[in-house]
Design a protein around this nucleic acid. Structure first.
Lengths: 149, 149
DNA sequence: ATATCTGCAAAAGATTTGCAAGGAG
DNA sequence: CTCCTTGCAAATCTTTTGCAGATAT
């Protein structure tokens, strides 16, 4: 049995980062934590303004920035897009940009060994210092492929 | 001995793509072909306006778009940047974003086998259809590392 | 001759900044 | 009570669009 609800857990996480808990902040944070694709600011706004009518797009931006600074989420661009997307999973994993539905999805395949190989090859051969590796795939997601048949 | 100069070759390439040859277009194309890092539109503009004073930033944008549509270059964003970068090498290879000098550099290491492994693993495990794979590294380039010592 | 290209200016789209009022701790 | 957060508006930055005149073929 759980001692704390999900909501209470989110509140603790935010407070530990020195962030005050407001209804808007909590709604954005909870939505992002549950999201499987990675919406941009507008997408977050559209999703949370239902549960939390007192919400402005600007507040979404400010909170996304606060979360990123706190290390709770990662901000990235993908493909030839100009918008930022936000991912609550900050460990290395690939993203797929679907050309059909325009969603950005996590790739859940077991690729860590390949990424490690790649990292070693790059470090050994190039002399650059590599902090982070981002793998972006462009294609068509499984769901869109199935829908097309 | 070469039969055609580099300039004449560029002109042929452009004409074959159905693009008219103008001084501005040729300057942009030649600069991009020789560039090792991958500038954004502003960077291209600053570089070419010396050789070609009759040059506007807007012309740079229009030509970059024309080149991309012709498949001569690739347009991409990297890291948490909002600008587009342009690469005359359209085959799969990783890019490094240097946190020190802010340049975007090609990685010339031999990674093709690793990329192939990754591609196979992803295709087999995910069911997505993968058209293109982009590998972006964030770190510090060799030159900046050396300069720091 | 005519369709394309250039350059200027304005528009568009995403994100950031400034500031006064409201709310959390 | 004090500082942080919100929401509005305006500003900023990059890229795109519209249009008239110039140029390549």
């Amino acid at each position: 049995m759980e001692t704390y609800s999900k909501k209470e857990e989110s509140q603790s996480v935010l407070r530990e980062c020195g962030l005050r808990v407001t209804p808007q902040r909590l709604a954005i944070f909870d939505f992002l934590r549950d999201s499987k694709d990675h919406p941009n600011a507008e997408g977050v706004y559209q999703a949370v303004k239902d549960r939390c009518p007192a919400m402005s797009l600007n507040t979404v931006y400010k909170n996304l920035e606060a979360f990123e600074q706190a290390g709770l989420i990662t901000k990235f661009t993908i493909g030839d897009r100009q918008k930022f997307h936000y991912d609550p999973n900050t460990k290395t994993h690939p993203h797929l940009l679907c050309l059909s539905c325009s969603m950005v999805k996590d790739i859940d395949a077991e690729i860590q060994p390949h990424v490690c190989d790649l990292n070693e090859a790059l470090a050994a051969q190039t002399g650059h210092q590599i902090h982070r590796i981002e793998i972006h795939l462009v294609g068509v997601c499984r769901e869109c492929l199935q829908a097309a048949n």
